[in-house]
Computed example of a mutant assay.
Amino acid sequence: MLTLSSSPTLYPLSDRGVISLTGDDRTKYLQGQVTCDVALLNSGEATLGGHCDSKGRLWGSFWLANLREELLLITNASLLERQLPELKKFAVFAKTEVVDATLQWQVYGLAGEGLSYWLDQQVTGDNLWQGGVVIPVAAEHALLVLPKDSPAPELPIGSEQAWRGLMIQAGIPELHAEHQGEYIPQMLNLQALDGISFTKGCYMGQETVARAKYRGANKKVMYILSGTASAPISVNQDLELQLGENWRRAGTVLNVYQDGEQCLITSVLNKDLEADTVFRIKGQDDSRFSLQTLPYSLTE
């Protein structure tokens, strides 16, 4: 439904929030707060990750990048109001400063055929570029984070909505404020995208995350669904599944892309669903959705 552009395309993203960590203890501090292994990131490297409460429920998912003297978390801006105070809570005991740096940065999506070749011509081996960083997120897809006053590359411009669709197709989770505190990291498939380290030691919510892996405690996963709807769909709308002549609530919309009546959504649903299950948006009786194959293998 949504095809990759025939050449590298730039997608300006207005809904990204950026958290900055600086100071001597930035790596050590963040290591004890998030699911990914911060200490393994060399300069210019990046990873997916999650930030949990003490019960293992997500305050947010993010991309984390190492900019030599600074760590940047790129996330959905709607999460910051609740997430940032939680991330800063224990920073007073460490040599690190945790701040909302959204206004200091501009964030873009990059995608299209030939993107890898184009990046090879533009960027040094450590992915640092013009004071910012390139974050690979999927094959021929990347995020570009640049200082506010740095010129953007001269490329064709794509829409923010199209980028959202590309990320849904790639199975990249996107958490919004409406779902903070609802899901453990495995429910967003973070383990399948190298966003969880099970060897780095303790961090906030680690016991719950480990229990889900080693005891099979997690019963839900994030699915991609494709279908049609004649009315707009929004994050957190109820999703229903068909049982004979009846419909039963199955979950809520996590993220959505719409082009006319054609739609892609993600939703956290029970992992034992039949592949041919039929879904609809509650209140939109003519809408229909079906499960799509994830572009990666799921593990606990």
Rank of each mutant, 00 (worst) to 15 (best):
T3P: 03
Y11N: 03
S14Q: 08
S14N: 13
S20T: 10
S20N: 08
L21N: 01
T22Y: 04
R26K: 13
T27I: 14
K28Y: 11
G32C: 06
C36D: 12
V38H: 03
S43E: 15
E45F: 11
G50A: 04
C52H: 06
C52E: 09
K55Q: 07
L58T: 01
L71W: 14
L73R: 02
N76C: 10
A77G: 12
S78M: 09
L79V: 02
L79R: 03
Q83A: 15
K88G: 11
K89E: 12
W105E: 07
V107L: 00
V107Y: 01
G109P: 04
L110Y: 10
L115S: 06
S116M: 12
W118E: 04
D120M: 05
Q121W: 10
W129T: 01
G131V: 01
V133T: 07
I135S: 11
P136D: 12
E140M: 06
H141A: 02
P151S: 03
P153F: 08
P156W: 04
Q161K: 06
G165P: 12
L166C: 00
I168L: 10
A170E: 06
L175T: 05
H176D: 15
H179G: 07
Q180R: 01
E182W: 14
E182P: 01
E182Q: 14
I184C: 14
N189C: 06
L190D: 12
A192K: 01
D194S: 13
S197G: 05
F198L: 07
T199G: 00
Y203P: 07
Q206H: 15
Q206M: 09
Q206E: 13
K213R: 15
K213M: 11
K220E: 07
T228N: 15
T228L: 13
A231L: 15
P232K: 11
I233Y: 12
S234C: 04
N236D: 15
D238W: 11
L239T: 07
Q242T: 02
Q242A: 12
G244D: 08
G244K: 10
R249C: 00
G251F: 08
Q258H: 05
E261K: 14
E261G: 02
I265E: 04
T266C: 05
V268K: 01
V268I: 13
V268T: 04
N270K: 14
K271I: 13
E274M: 12
A275T: 14
T277F: 09
R280S: 06
R288D: 03
F289L: 11
S290N: 11
Y296H: 02
